[in-house]
Amino acid sequence: MAERNVESVNKVREAVSQDLLGGRIDLLLGWEKGHYWWQSRPLFARSEADLEKLAWDSFCAVNLSRYLLEELKDHDKVGVLVKGCDARAFNRLLQDNMVRREQVILYGLPCPGMLDYNRLVEKAGGAPLEITEENGRVIIKVGSGEQEAQRDDLLLDKCKDCRYPDPAVYDQLLFSPQGEKEVTERFKTVEELEEMSAEERFGYWEKELSRCLRCYACRQACPFCSCRECFVEQENPRWQGRAYQPSENFMFHLVRAYHGTGRCIDCGECERSCPVDIPLQELNRKLIKDINELYGDYEAGLDPEQEPPLLTYRPDDPAAFSEK
């Protein structure tokens, strides 16, 4: 891959190895290459040899902060590489009292956005063999030659609409900030759905949700889903039935999304984890949009000191129903 990446990986490795080898942290959460070149998966580094595997490239989409929930059970102090969304996820966990700030060292990585393999395939018109990147362009190598594309056109959905690519919280910032990004299409699909009639919308969701396997990968990936006992597994009362039918699908999806009201950091990991491409972000974003409209602008995960909208109120709040 591009030179830029070799250089920057070395820089990241340098920054973390002192702390890991010097014993300041017991574990580093980072990324390493997966089975394919277009996959970067979480790396749990405990030694110098582990750090050799470190990757920081255009496929490090996995949100690492979520792993703190497990890893802090066995480690006193953990280092985490945080992009914009990983950092907001960390703040989410902090606000939910799931982690303590002093248990963690955060290495901030301003994020250029991660690439979507499916978009590479689409652009290349076949399975890409490798890519090189320079100046905002991506050269995709395929069997028959090369294709060139704008990097921005190849981003994952979650990155296309990402407003805060720079970490909101860190101990060290490893590269220069990207700056706040202007996003224009964040609520586009939500608005399109709002335009539909109730019948059409129901039909849309019934169809989309019908694919749900109830594997709960979306929940496992989510930084706000840190409940010790999730409602889907609660036995008494048994809120969530196991049957494969629309009623149960709606129950899961409405409740999961609702639990994120004012808490969802819009990292898109739920949707990215879903094996059957259910547009979960549209449910999450509907709630973000409405809460902002009704109770003032709020971006979950940006500032842990700011009270989440459902944990507070004002006596003169508006309502979405008649108060006469």
């Binding site: 939500v190 759905l193 709002e194 109730a198 019948e199 059409e200 919308r201 129901f202 039909g203 849309y204 969701w205 019934e206 709606f250 999806h253 409405l254 999304a257 609702y258 009201t261 004012g262 449910l283 509907k286 709630l287 409405d290 809460i291 009704l294 109770y295 909208p309 459902l310 109120y313 004002r314 006596p315 709040d317 508006p318 309502a319 979405a320 129903f321």
Partner: peptide
Amino acid sequence: SGNYQSRRRLSAFKRLVEFAGFE
């Protein structure tokens, strides 16, 4: 403050169920 809390929660929820296709 119970109803101040529920005003926010149920407003968000009402809009969500409408978004899901309920009249």
